[in-house]
Computed example of a mutant assay.
Amino acid sequence: MSTVTTRPADTAAPLPKGLKQRRLPSWAPLGIAVVSVAAAVGAGLLFGLQSKVQWGLIAALLFVAVSFALASAVEGRRQAKDRLATSLVWVCFLLAVVPLASLIWTTVGQGSKVLDGYFLSHSMAGLLDIQPGGGIYHAIIGTLEQVGLATLIAAPIGLLTAIYLVEYGKGTLAKAVTFFVDVMTGIPSIVAGLFILSFWLLMLGFDYSGFAGAMSLAILMMPVVVRSTEEMLKLVPNELREASLALGVPKWRTITKVVLPTAVGGITTGLVLAVARIAGETAPILLLVYGAPYINNNPFEGAQSSLPLYVYQQYVNGNAASYDRAWAAALVLIIFVMLLNLVARGIAHWKAPKAGH
């Protein structure tokens, strides 16, 4: 009987010397980046380029070109193409991050000048626009009430529409609903404001109010809720539905007791992101809420303010005091939207299935 000897799985035959491929060291990308930045700074100073953006573009081009050239000389054309694609991805990433970081840096630097407890707890009532002081308490109240009412309107409608499209929708009606949801997703916010203006204010004769602005925000929010909820419901395995129906459970009860609880994490995340999407809208609020320098706790009667509208109005005033207030309100709005996004990520992480369960 012949015996077959096998090499242990954890030992591998060494590659012949001629088959070993040369590779750039692991620190090569960082070194190339440092050299590219230094060369770009030197070129900018030598040729008198004043814009730091030009320096950055020169550094990016040098980084991509040098990475490709070195990889071609050392690793070969195939690896050089891979290095080229990786370099382009990093450059595009930095091109997207740098403006965002610059925006946050500028907003924090300018907005922190007047952002304090007094600014958050007072309104602009009885204060001239050219005078320092004042606050955004009335704008915070308006934003919370308008966004809250818009959520109460849009969330159930968007949720029920998504359930219809995924669980019941077939034929012409479902295709028509899907088409109009796609159309609503891309409409400018000013169109939603003009629709409510013509219908609610001009045709029905109601006055400016926070509720009118909330209705326009709800129009902008509904397609986002429908799309996010629809995608989350599609991720629920059909086996869960079939098992429930096989036990004789009615379809409506299967949806409420099986489908929705399974997708509740993703649905809640999409809802929070939709709230963050409408929190910074200015155009419909400018048309329908009109703005007020005093505190109005009733969103159904009289003009109100909001954070985006407050930023716009203070900037239009065109003096140093109003500019400071505009930057501070913009910083508060950014913090508010950032907190909503963090809440959405936290909900998604909390509801994500754990390994082993």
Rank of each mutant, 00 (worst) to 15 (best):
L286C: 04
F47W: 09
A60N: 01
T262F: 13
L62P: 02
V53I: 13
L309R: 03
M184W: 01
A155S: 11
T269M: 08
V224T: 09
R77Y: 01
F199P: 01
E242A: 11
G280L: 11
L286R: 07
A292P: 01
Y312N: 06
K20S: 01
G193E: 07
K113G: 06
S322Y: 00
Y312G: 02
I267P: 12
L152K: 13
Y310A: 15
P156I: 11
G266W: 00
W327V: 06
L342C: 10
V332Y: 03
P261L: 10
A174I: 05
D129G: 15
Y168F: 13
Y312F: 15
G126W: 00
Q54P: 00
A192L: 03
F336P: 09
L271M: 14
M124H: 06
G291W: 15
P188M: 05
N297D: 10
S189D: 04
K20C: 07
V64N: 00
R23K: 14
K175G: 11
L340N: 05
A154K: 01
S102I: 09
A330L: 14
E301D: 08
L57E: 00
K52C: 05
P353D: 01
S67E: 02
F206Y: 09
G158A: 14
V114C: 12
I278E: 08
H357K: 12
A59Y: 00
I141N: 06
A28H: 13
G270V: 05
V37Q: 03
S2W: 03
L57F: 00
V4I: 15
V98K: 04
I130W: 07
G248V: 10
L309F: 14
L49Q: 11
G171M: 02
A274N: 05
S305E: 13
A101N: 05
I295N: 07
G205A: 08
G265D: 08
T254G: 09
I153G: 03
Q131S: 15
S26L: 13
R77K: 13
A292H: 06
G210S: 09
Q304I: 02
V53Q: 10
S228N: 15
I187D: 05
L103T: 14
L19P: 01
V289W: 04
F211G: 10
L287T: 07
I347H: 02
